[in-house]
Design a protein around this nucleic acid. Structure first.
Lengths: 141, 141
DNA sequence: CGGAATCCTAACCGATACTG
DNA sequence: CAGTATCGGTTAGGATTCCG
């Protein structure tokens, strides 16, 4: 039983590692944030919609769609659903005709929004350096 | 010329927004970080490889492959190449036989590693709450 | 207005095999 | 040892159409 092929060992390692990845908190967070639109929705609901920061506020579906101009309604809906599922935004339906739906950050959502701002800060401070390195590197090819 | 169809307007908005997304620093950073293995490589080179933090250090290709057990060599190479391109890691080749290659974080890379730690902190503090909300939500379906 | 359902394509990514 | 090259399955996500 000590005779295991390299392939078997690799397969085993993979399973264990996948399990680790699946349960690692920071990976779970990154999987969430890596969704192209999550951060933008967070920004919009966090009040950073119209140039410059503002107070977090509730927004209607169509407001979000207009503000985050490039998003398809499929992705916007999908993003909002997953954020709602994770307790980061609330979804409120008012039974007018036609129906009115508004979204708002929860406390948890605002907390996450605060963290994404730190990311943004790093990006704003260092991303130009990264891009410069990239150009240098490409030029030196 | 003021008569534009909704489709035309949407197409226009999409192009503009894609351009915005492509040049927005925080989006560029997130695109980088969203790569499944980037953060793990950063952690490994940052010294968080063998449980608990350590000092950043240079590592060989095979060391990384062993530490980040689940990664395919294709993805590891691809990840390292892109990190090198962005000036976040250095690649050093020593012409022994067989050849020896080692990778190390640059200052920029260490700086980014520091930021990903903040993410990890948020994840560790709040991710359980998120998961709890998720289960509640799924149960209430 | 705020979606849901369907179709369809491009990109990603793992597995495998080969190389200097 | 440290890769490159290629193939094939899976999936993300856009466009479109329909619905309460």
């Amino acid at each position: 039983m000590t005779t295991r092929t390299a392939t078997e060992r690799r397969a085993r390692a993979k399973v264990e590692y996948d399990a680790f990845l699946a349960t690692c908190p920071s990976r779970q967070l990154l999987d969430r944030l890596s969704d192209k639109w999550v951060v933008l929705v967070l920004c919009a609901l966090g009040g950073e919609g119209g140039d410059g920061p503002g107070a977090p506020r509730a927004m209607r579906y169509s407001e979000l769609a207009r503000l985050i101009a490039g998003v398809s309604q499929k992705m916007l809906t999908q993003t909002l659903r997953s954020l709602e599922r994770d307790g980061l935004v609330t979804r409120t339906v008012v039974a007018t005709v036609p129906v009115t739906v508004s979204y708002e950050l929860t406390d948890l959502g605002e907390s996450l929004h605060g963290t994404t701002r730190l990311l943004r800060a790093w990006a704003q401070d260092h991303m130009d350096a990264v891009l410069a390195r990239r150009e240098e590197h490409d030029a030196a090819s």
